[in-house]
Design a protein around this nucleic acid. Sequence first.
DNA 1: AGAACTACCGGAAACGTTTACAGCTTCGAC
DNA 2: GTCGAAGCTGTAAACGTTTCCGGTAGTTCT
Lengths: 342, 342
Amino acid sequence: MVSVATRVTIREIADLAGVSIATVSRVVNGRDDVSEETRELVQRIVREHGYTANRSARGLSAGRTGLIGVLVPLVHPAYFSGILSGAAEALYEHDMRLVLSPTRHEHDREVGMVDRLMHGVTDGALLVLPEESSDELERLLEQGNRFVVVDPRSPLTGSIPSVSAAHASGAGQAVEHLLGLGHRRIAAITGPHDWVATEDRLRGYHAALGSAGIMAAPELVVDAGQWEIAAGVEAAERLLSLPEPPTAIFAFNDNLAVGAIRAARSRGLSVPEDLSVVGFDDVEQATVITPELTTVRQPLEEMGRMAVTLLIRLLDRQRFETLHVELATRLVVRDSTAPPAS
Amino acid sequence: MVSVATRVTIREIADLAGVSIATVSRVVNGRDDVSEETRELVQRIVREHGYTANRSARGLSAGRTGLIGVLVPLVHPAYFSGILSGAAEALYEHDMRLVLSPTRHEHDREVGMVDRLMHGVTDGALLVLPEESSDELERLLEQGNRFVVVDPRSPLTGSIPSVSAAHASGAGQAVEHLLGLGHRRIAAITGPHDWVATEDRLRGYHAALGSAGIMAAPELVVDAGQWEIAAGVEAAERLLSLPEPPTAIFAFNDNLAVGAIRAARSRGLSVPEDLSVVGFDDVEQATVITPELTTVRQPLEEMGRMAVTLLIRLLDRQRFETLHVELATRLVVRDSTAPPAS
DNA sequence: AGAACTACCGGAAACGTTTACAGCTTCGAC
DNA sequence: GTCGAAGCTGTAAACGTTTCCGGTAGTTCT
């Protein structure tokens, strides 16, 4: 019963096949300088014994571990799970694995973590919503670390590879949808103003209004300052107590939209009859609340997959041509929007 | 710009400190057979150069990689993210890392994955909600794999270490709460009947009713067969169209509870005035819906942490006396419950 | 004063791979 | 019939640690 389970090594496979370990290694790694019959023989033995190369040994010898670190703030579960699952799946297809490193709140730890993570543990990393400044990231890159930023929080300088969603275009779609329904007084509840997501969505909002020939009223744009429900409630209350309140609110994420709906309800307004609300993100909760939320879907899984693709390319060839990828967003129309009351 | 960034090795630290690599290794690993002054000298140099042991090398040499795998079905994001973040944090405190392996739908892959994961990659694993039968798990254990099961889906036989939530006690609390409000016709919407979670919660439900001297009416227990919202809607509709409908529903998870609320609302019943609803899990969504859901909180983070504790004990060969840990659940009273209409 | 510890440290062998290099065939061309 | 090239394979040197084993110096005991 004490099967100590000492795993089968390349040595044993080699002996069994009557070849050298070098040959086994070549077969396992798909090199092409092996004769067809040797290859088949070795492959059969490998299969029969369920041999897989010891990753530590491979890591030591070849300098690549097949592990990718993912630094992600666990505070946004609904958001990060999409990215993670996309990334994990894409990595799996390359026989690589994902090492999860939750970046808690403490900033100072973060930059050191990338560093530590890389050393002898992972070949590269995905940084999701990093706190780091562009400068710090640039420095990491120059030190030879290989990573891709997913959904940068601050604008990035040229050479840092990144994947993000088409914030502006998504915001545009949202506003156009509301315009199409006949709304003219369309408010915006924005997130923290130093986030790329906020700035780009704001740009999209203004652009859409502008090309419909509408001047955005400054009092209709309120800064929630965060992404949480409570902030959404508060911002919406400000909007709804205006002398001439909006007939529609575009909230810059789903949480804020939920807050807006709550604020409306507590004033006796019903959504969407008296007020239309659009969110952004399309997290799971969007379909849980009533009415189900019209919102802009971020392609989270796809972002994860794309980030992996970029990173692997980065690791293979040393030079990286495509630096920044922006993935399309799409408006999902549900029940929280309708033509204005009048 | 081609700073190849060759990391500092133990060799260099040793040279710098004028000692052998063996001594550096001892210091770094906190062995006690090093003189105080040598230790301090080495520690200073290590700190100055930011040296960390290459994990691949350590893994090869010592047979331990400091990585543990977590097999988790990514289909339940709200649920797993709590466990993951608890586990990751606990691991971090032991300077270990978490390798994420999403177990998609394909069952056959799962058992092989544990196996593959262990070999030269991780020292052990956490299996969250495994599909495997107790027998298969037992076999894995005997092959020398070290793992802890988190929230077993099927009942486990003796020797498999596991962490789970106090399903029965939580269910009891929920029912007692409803009884305390004055409810007598309390229905249950159960999950898939072969899950431990379902069976235990059912046991708690019956026990609480029983000790209040109430015989559970069989027609008040309906099997949703899954954990999704749609199933909850359907089950609740069956309950509400009974000749003598319940005044309260205990749904076996939050999704089902959301479904129940929807079903009630679409019949013109309002929650909690006409119908009380209690959920189970306390996922993020519970606070998003209106009314906010009264529900039984599972200590997800704590489960993750505890699983790590158990696993690390298992790896250290400190023989483990406690095989199965059950963590307490706690009723969180919010707005979806109230005294019956009378 | 010698023996027996103890505390500390270094040498060197492992750990399981990858890969540069060299060696052996075989074959076509001259 | 020799030469070079091409195709295949084996040898052995890395990769960066941990840890066993042995050695030296100092200390205590008898």
